[in-house]
């Protein structure tokens, strides 16, 4: 399934951010949003992420935290706000009309990466000297 491609894309984004901060950086965690109106299965992405992360430098300890975003829609006719669900054929439970606009639920985003910066030895010494 395409969940492996999603996990790989997340790791690539983390990798780019590590690189932009220079050497001696490790990712601690990455936080993502998956809208329920996207075709992504969180469990499969997690599994793929954990089996792939060691292949990306600085990512071998990176935790993936997934937040699912429930869908919210305005119905087409009366502009009620509701959660479109399969059991109602995605229609508004109040008036029965279909989705006009999806307000949320189509996210597929990286929202936060926590990075640990290890100071290289030289700088450590410098730091110590300044301290003395």
């Amino acid at each position: 399934m395409h969940e492996a491609a999603i996990a790989k894309s997340i790791l690539e984004i983390v990798g780019e951010r590590l690189q932009s901060l220079g050497a001696h950086t490790n990712a601690q965690s990455v936080e993502v949003l998956f809208g329920e109106f996207r075709n992504v299965d969180p469990e499969s992405v997690s599994f793929a992420f954990d089996s792939m992360r060691a292949l990306f430098s600085g990512c071998s300890d990176c935790r993936l935290s997934i937040n699912t975003v429930t869908a919210a829609a305005h119905c087409k006719d009366n502009h009620h706000q509701y959660r479109p669900q399969a059991e109602n054929a995605y229609r508004c439970p109040t008036c029965g009309s279909g989705i006009g606009k999806l307000l949320q639920g189509e996210e597929l985003d990286v929202v936060n990466v926590v990075i640990e910066i290890e100071r290289p030895d030289k700088e450590k010494k410098q730091h110590a000297r300044v301290g003395r």
Binding site: I13, Q28, L108, V110, V114, I115
Partner: peptide, 18 residues
């Protein structure tokens, strides 16, 4: 010596494909 950096910029996961 450790430091932490939070990278908050939102980025589309499939942005490269787009």
């Amino acid at each position: 010596m450790h430091e932490s950096a939070d990278e908050h910029a939102i980025e589309r996961i499939l942005g490269k494909n787009e």
